[in-house]
């Protein structure tokens, strides 16, 4: 049974030597049931603090958190039907893998037979069937991560929280786990709330993303909405690469306009902007062209196929109208 979460005007203020710090500033958002929802932002933006308040590891200074209509904000962590996969995994070093996974059910005094069955099933779910009797120290990083996941999932929580769970894994393993997590969410139907600072990860895994900056939510939307229609300059800049130039440099009206490198292309003859290629950055699947516009601004343009241009060539650029990005600050 899946659940939705409503965060209403939640704030968290921490005391500090230089005065109180608002880590989370009056945030409101609604997470649907059976959704893979991501909190994305740079470090210090408040995403982890928000996650910890949902888990019950911190108490909001103000606001409420409604789970299926009930405000869980005053409840301590051990009374919330919410489980967390920690960044450091936090596996109990003195217990075996099976005991780790069984912990939550044991604390709830579930019958032994039910615990054993669930542990076996969950071990199979994360494909660690034969590792039950090992201790965490004997497992690799990726395996430990899956144990942390299993330990949370076995309790069938209403919400699963993941706090930068993939950040300690190497690139290849990380990509594998991203697919794995997506699969698990779809299979179990549990609402996942995922925290990360890696925008590639957020875009590839999420149903919806909340981009956070300095304690506030800058934008909420699907990956496509965030990428194609960033609401603020910060969002546009944080997700992928975004060029920003004076509108006049491209012969347009308005103050500032933005576009993605892959949306601009070279054109023969008259285009929207003129400039010279200053640097060519070959990246295998894609090539970046650093172009200095006649207006003096520098932009990046990228193409999959090799272009017949060289450094210091004069070029013309064109960008489709619907791909232009205009946002507030």
């Amino acid at each position: 049974m899946s659940s939705g979460l409503v965060i209403q005007s939640v704030s968290k203020t921490f005391p500090s030597p230089t005065g109180p710090v608002r880590a989370v500033d009056n945030v409101s958002l609604t997470i649907q049931s059976n959704e893979f929802f991501t909190l994305l932002g740079p470090s210090g933006c408040g995403k982890t603090t928000l996650l910890r308040m949902i888990a019950g590891l911190d108490i909001p200074t103000s606001g409420s958190i409604l789970l299926d209509g009930q405000d869980i904000a005053p409840l301590p962590a051990y009374r919330r039907p919410v489980n967390t996969v920690f960044q450091s995994y936090a596996l109990f070093p003195h217990m075996t893998v099976s005991d780790n996974i069984a912990f939550g059910m044991k604390m709830q005094n579930k019958p032994q037979a039910e615990i054993e069955k669930s542990v076996r099933e969950t071990l199979a779910l994360v494909r660690l069937e034969d590792k039950g009797e090992r201790k965490p120290a004997q497992l690799s990083g990726g395996q430990q991560q899956r144990v942390a996941l299993a330990r949370a999932l076995v309790n069938h929580p209403k919400i699963l929280l993941l706090d930068e769970s993939l950040s300690a894994l190497d690139y290849k393993l990380r990509k594998e786990m991203q697919i794995e997590l997506k699969r698990l969410q779809r299979e179990t139907g549990i609402t996942f709330i995922f925290v990360t600072h890696d925008q590639d990860e957020a875009l590839s895994m999420s149903d919806r993303i909340a981009v956070m900056e300095k304690g506030n939510v800058a934008q909420i939307g699907t990956p496509q909405e965030i990428y194609d229609d960033p609401a603020t300059r910060f969002v546009a800049d944080f997700i992928g690469i975004c060029n920003f130039v004076k509108a006049a440099s491209l012969g347009l009206d308005g103050g500032e306009v933005g576009f993605r490198p892959e949306d601009a292309s070279f054109t023969v003859g008259h285009g929207m902007g003129k400039g010279h290629i200053r640097h060519i950055n070959y990246r295998g699947a894609v090539t970046h062209y650093i172009v200095e516009l006649d207006s003096g601004e520098t932009i990046t343009l990228s193409e999959d196929d090799p272009q017949n241009v060289a450094v210091n060539d004069a070029v013309n650029l064109v960008i489709p109208q619907e791909r232009l990005i205009r946002c507030g600050t």
């Binding site: 019950g56 962590a77 051990y78 009374r79 967390t84 920690f86 936090a90 604390m107 309790n155």
Partner: peptide, 11 residues
């Protein structure tokens, strides 16, 4: 985080 995990797991 070990104690946070324990609390998170209903202890």
């Amino acid at each position: 985080s070990l104690f946070e995990a324990a609390a998170d797991l209903y202890a």
